[in-house]
Amino acid sequence: MDFLRPTTLDEALAIKAQRPDAVPIAGGTDVMVELNFDHRRPEALLDLTRIGELAEWSTLDGTVTLGAGVPYTRVIDELGDALPGLAMAARTVGSPQIRNRGTVGGNLGAASPAGDTHPVLLATGARVEVASVRGRRFIAAEDFYTGVKRNALEPDELITAVRLPVATGGEQFAKIGTRNAMVIAVCSFAIVLREGHVGAAIGSAAPTPRRVGEAERFLLGELPWDAPAPLADSLKRRFGELVASAATPIDDVRGSAAYRTHALSVLARRTLTWAWDGYRGSVRECA
């Protein structure tokens, strides 16, 4: 096995072009588990932790460009205000030690249906920035997840960043698990409300994380945007039903399909209430 240690993105892309079989390793919280248990013996590891540009973030014109290699702890500490939904998801990942290493780029690379950042990336309308020696391109989050643990990356490409809008309304993420730490989501849900935009997405409830289009369109039409008052129970219930109907979960050790579907409708209802409160707060601040 080779251990490749580029210090610039250009160098890393040149290596990846020559050796598409090289497995990128960022925080290693997915890759090392596979190596330790001999589930994977790649020809080469491509260490991304020495590339400064992947570990930075910046904000321009209401968009955050978050480097693929920024660990969760920094997302929580540095971006809680700009990206509250992503920070909420980050807080639920693993444990402090895992959050100190694990990255959004790694979550995208692994593309697990249960990855916690995915519903938020989908609901905010994030774009994944990927690069190769051939150039740079952007993939909408909803086009990124192509199957169970599969994504839209070409073999010579690396994920360089994600671009997300700075929150202007309400954002929420919630996840079901047996305790508050160290749980892979039984199911998860994210919702983003801002003027003219409803984003909602489910995790761990289908082969890929996915947006729930019908539920989004329902809310966009029904929410009292101009006179933001508390929401009727019937509206929340209907939203919960539409979210649940978009899921195609499986039975597994973490939960049954029926439980997941039910839990999703509850998460959807609750997070809608909180996100709408957040939206109303932001409207009041502007007034």
Partner: peptide
Amino acid sequence: DVPVCSCLVAAGQAE
């Protein structure tokens, strides 16, 4: 200075 699980750090990453 950052606490991590050393079982999940590849040796070469500690160079």
